Structures are given as C-alpha cells and as structure tokens.
Amino acid sequence: MVVSWQQVFLVAILISKARSFTIDQVTDPIQHAEGPFWHAETEELYFVDTFKSTVYRWSYKNKKTQSYHLENHKSVGVIIPIKNKKDQFIVAADRDICKLYWPASDNNTEAKLEHLASVDKDKPANQFNDGKADSNGRLWLGTLTRNKDLSVAPEGGSLYSISGPKDIHEKAKPLSISNGLDWSNDENKLYHIDSETRKVAEYDFNKETGDIHNKKIIFDLRDHPSLEGIPDGMVADEDGNLWVALHGGSAIIKIDPNTGNLLETIKMPAKYCTSLVFGGTDLATIFVTTSRLKVNEKELSQTPSAGSVFAITNLGVKGRKLHEAVI
C-alpha cells in the first residue's frame, strides 16, 4: 500500500504567506521517475522510469498504476499523448521517436510500439532526456551523451523541434543535459534548462515558424548558494512563473522569469527531484517525480519514498493544460 512520507503526510507551513500545503506520496517508488504529463481529459498522470525503459500511467480516479516496458530500448525520456488519438502516444526512447499504441485498461489488446524517426545517428551514446509539445503540436525534445556509468559527457546534446518523421530541426547546441522547458503565457518566449550550467535560459520564440533566437540567461542557481543540486524538469503556472525541480537539492523552486527573482522554495521528502507538472481536476496540484538511482543506504533510510511521485496540494496556484503532440 502506498503511504505518505513518514506514514501520514508532510504538512509544510509557508510563514511568509500564512498558508499551508501538503505533500503526499501517490505512487510506489521506482528507480528514476521522470517526464510527467497530466492528461486533463482522462485525468491520468503519465511518467517514465528512465533506465528501466518503462512508461507508466496513474489514474487520479482509482489510484491504480499501469506500466509498459519498452523491450528493445535502454532508456526512455518522455511520453506525450497524441492529439485526437485515443490511447496513442509519442515516446522518446534512446535516440528514437516512437508511437505507442497503449490500449485502455479494460481492453485486452496488446500494446504496440512503432518507430517513427531517430536523431543523433552519429552519436550512439546519446539519448533523449526531456521535452514537451508546443501549442501547434510540435515536439521539442532534447538529448544528452550518456557514459557507461550513467554520468553525462559535456556538450554532447542538442535541442530538436519535430513536426513529423522527416521534419526534424536542431534548434540549440551544444548542450550537456538538455532538460526542462516551457513557454510564456503569450508564447513569445521559450524557457529551457541545460542542467550542467545550473542556468535557466530564455529564447525569443516564433509560434508559427518554431524559430528561436536571442538567448539570454534569466536565472542562475549559482547566485543562490543555499540551494543545492542542479535544475532539472520545469513547468510554468497560469501566472507565467516557472517551477523547477532541483535534482540533488531536495526541493522544487518557483522563479519569476521576468525579474529572475526566486519566489519560493519547497523542501521535498526526496533528494533527487526530477520533474513536475500541474494536474488534478482543477490543475491546482503539482505532481513531482523523484529518483532513488543515486540514493545511498543512509539517505534511503531517511527518505524511503524516494523514487515515488508526490502530489503537492493547497498551494494556492494553478497550472496550464499541457499541449498534446500532432505528428
């Protein structure tokens, strides 16, 4: 049975804003949970276990979890539903972009994976890491170079936009760990993280063409010595502020992309927070994925729920509906 951290739930008080929120564990731990996507119509949360090459879906209604293992892949980065295609998804695994046909739980049909395209064909050690779809259904997926010990080689990755199997464009390079991304409310800005730099970058974004230019740094974690780890996954809220998971920092943070100010820090019951997404019936819950891949025995005894997905409620903020893929 899934229980909340320390067998009940963690209540954190935000003294500065005189309000409280709760952090609850909603799934069992896995090795390295990543890439969450909230599907508003079905009220399901999708996420992956990166190095176990497995995708998951968790039902908000019945709290049940299903999984599908990608047998011929070593890693999986993200899973994104395809617009107007029930139970069809884009999965970015290794260097491959695939279509997953994943039947509903009451359907006995077997799941099927179809290869669509590949990137970084001259870099066999590369893999997809994180990504999203923009409002036109274009995929934005980033890569990195993975060493045999799972460490990351510097400047081996890129950020791609993908409109179809033969419509793939490299948008930014070189990147070490292409990671979290999202857009401003007016879609004139693309925000992107290269984790190794510990910075959040902003690009001018053309919604129609998908062009990005005029890169500038809007937040540097090195300016906040009290914060540990590196910035990982990222999501924007309805006010246009950015929420960032700190991998190795036991926290998620909220930043204002217009001023670069750190607005809020929420400590988490897991050292390695990997990503986050707004969900729930009113998009007022933040689901945070975490990892236990690098957790030592002492840390695991202190945070036994590391690797779980956590739900943060009563934050007083709502998110935006994520876009589905059109491909």
Rank of each mutant, 00 (worst) to 15 (best):
A111H: 09
A111E: 05
K112R: 14
K112Q: 13
K112Y: 14
L113V: 11
L113M: 06
H115M: 13
L116P: 03
A117F: 10
V119D: 00
K121P: 00
D122F: 11
D122I: 07
N126Y: 08
N126V: 05
Q127E: 13
Q127C: 14
F128I: 03
N129S: 05
G131L: 00
G131Y: 04
S135D: 11
N136V: 06
N136D: 14
N136T: 14
G137N: 09
R138E: 03
L139T: 04
L139S: 05
W140S: 09
W140G: 02
W140P: 00
L141M: 15
L141D: 01
L141G: 02
G142D: 03
L144V: 07
L144K: 12
T145L: 03
T145H: 11
N147F: 09
N147P: 05
N147T: 04
K148P: 09
D149V: 10
P154Q: 08
E155L: 10
G156P: 04
S158H: 13
L159Y: 01
G164K: 05
G164A: 05
P165E: 10
P165W: 11
I168D: 06
H169I: 14
H169L: 12
E170F: 04
P174Y: 11
L175N: 07
I177H: 05
I177L: 11
S178V: 06
N179T: 12
N179Q: 10
W183K: 03
W183N: 00
S184N: 06
K189H: 14
L190V: 02
I193E: 00
I193H: 02
D194I: 00
E196C: 13
E196R: 13
E196G: 14
E196V: 07
T197Y: 13
T197V: 08
K199I: 08
V200A: 03
A201Q: 12
E202F: 11
Y203C: 05
D204P: 00
D204M: 10
D204C: 04
F205P: 00
F205W: 09
K207T: 15
E208Q: 14
T209M: 04
D211M: 11
D211K: 15
I212Q: 10
H213F: 14
N214V: 09
I217S: 09
I218K: 11
L221I: 01
L221M: 13
D223H: 15
D223R: 14
D223Y: 06
H224S: 02
L227H: 10
L227W: 12
E228C: 13
G229C: 01
G229D: 01
I230N: 00
I230V: 15
D232I: 03
G233P: 03
A236P: 07
D237Y: 11
D237G: 03
E238M: 12
E238H: 10
D239T: 15
D239W: 09
G240L: 07
G240Q: 02
G240D: 02
G240C: 10
L242R: 00
L242K: 07
W243I: 02
A245W: 04
A245F: 03
A245R: 08
H247M: 09
G249R: 01
G249P: 04
S250Q: 11
S250E: 04
I252N: 05
K254S: 09
D256G: 04
P257W: 05
N258T: 13
T259N: 09
T259P: 07
